[in-house]
């Protein structure tokens, strides 16, 4: 099945006609500062084999000229590993959220005509161009206490024994790289942008920002991490805390089961399974709490 996809892509590439020496056209939605206006700018870069969106952006940075030859500031974007494991380079490529480093130009051209469109993620505040502020995503991990509550790092022997089945269940969840694709595609996850008020102290602003994050949906990514740690023999010891977090405002109840999250996750993490498990755990937990009070 894989081969077919590849061969198709090649066939279509030929049809699209992108070849050595030709130019790849790119349209980028830019924004200079967080509160600024956004605007489109077009670029052209020489085509190369196996090119991905990152190499396009690198070339744009090097040439720093728009399609019509004007000198423009290079486009800002995030990346690091270029192997799709660090989660940095999420953006909207031809309208869909994905990782720029694994978005091959050949495939994009085959998919979507002769121009590639890049936009920043829409669910996070823009910092500049394609760079967005994803602190809310990490706040979600704090909210659900996504860690194993160990006593400390002194040598207390090995961890709990874990069956291969449990490991195989947990491992995929543990590959989540906090890229935010699942949040970007989720119709229930909406943008929260908190702007510092005149004269507001750093601390107050910080507190207000976090409160705003906490009030809104945590999203599939954090729900899945909560389930990962609730399944771990030691992590489970604070399962109640996580359930409390997941049933507070912005918790699991906000999910509308659109299942986009699982469809766009670049790591193929079974997010709907996590969400359903969280739903089940919340049901049991809520009923238990009703009778244990």
């Amino acid at each position: 099945m894989m081969i077919r996809a590849t061969d198709d892509a090649h066939a279509m590439t030929d049809a699209a006609g992108a070849q050595r020496g030709e130019l790849v056209r790119v349209r980028i939605l830019r924004q200079d500062v967080p509160s600024g206006e956004s605007y489109w700018e077009r670029f052209e870069v020489p085509y190369e084999r196996n090119m991905n969106v990152i190499s396009i952006l690198q070339k744009i940075a090097a040439q720093a000229r728009s399609q019509d030859g004007r000198k423009v500031a290079p486009v800002a974007w995030d990346c690091n590993c270029l192997e799709e494991v660090c989660g940095s380079c999420t953006m909207l490529i031809n309208g869909r959220t994905r990782m720029a480093c694994s978005a091959l130009v050949d495939r994009l051209l085959a998919e979507d005509g002769d121009e590639i469109e890049l936009r920043p993620m829409s669910k996070f505040p823009v910092v500049r161009d394609l760079v967005v502020d994803r602190r809310r995503l990490f706040r979600g991990l704090e909210k659900v206490e996504a860690w194993v509550p160990v006593e400390g790092s002194y040598d207390l022997g090995p961890g709990p024994r874990i069956s291969p089945d449990e490991q195989e269940d947990a491992y995929p969840l543990s590959t989540c790289m906090s890229c935010g694709c699942c949040l970007e595609a989720c119709p229930q996850y909406t943008k929260v942008e908190v702007v510092r008020r005149e004269g507001e102290s750093e601390k107050d602003f910080e507190a207000r920002r976090k409160a705003a994050y906490d009030a809104a949906f945590v999203g599939a990514h954090a729900v899945s991490q909560a389930m990962l740690f609730n399944a771990h023999p030691t992590g489970r010891m604070i399962a109640d805390e996580r359930m409390k977090a997941l049933t507070r405002q912005g918790g699991i109840q906000m999910c509308g089961n659109a299942q986009n999250c699982v469809a766009v996750c670049p790591k193929g993490i079974p997010l709907t399974r996590s969400i359903a498990r969280a739903g089940r755990a919340a049901t049991v937990w809520a009923i238990k709490r009703l009778f244990d009070r």
Partner: peptide
């Protein structure tokens, strides 16, 4: 309230379950 807080996006993500979400 739920509808008001959601942002349907079948245009960008034309998956069956997303279509169902929007149709719901």
């Amino acid at each position: 309230v739920i509808i008001a807080n959601g942002l349907p996006n079948v245009g960008s993500y034309p998956y069956v379950s997303n279509l169902r979400y929007t149709l719901q």
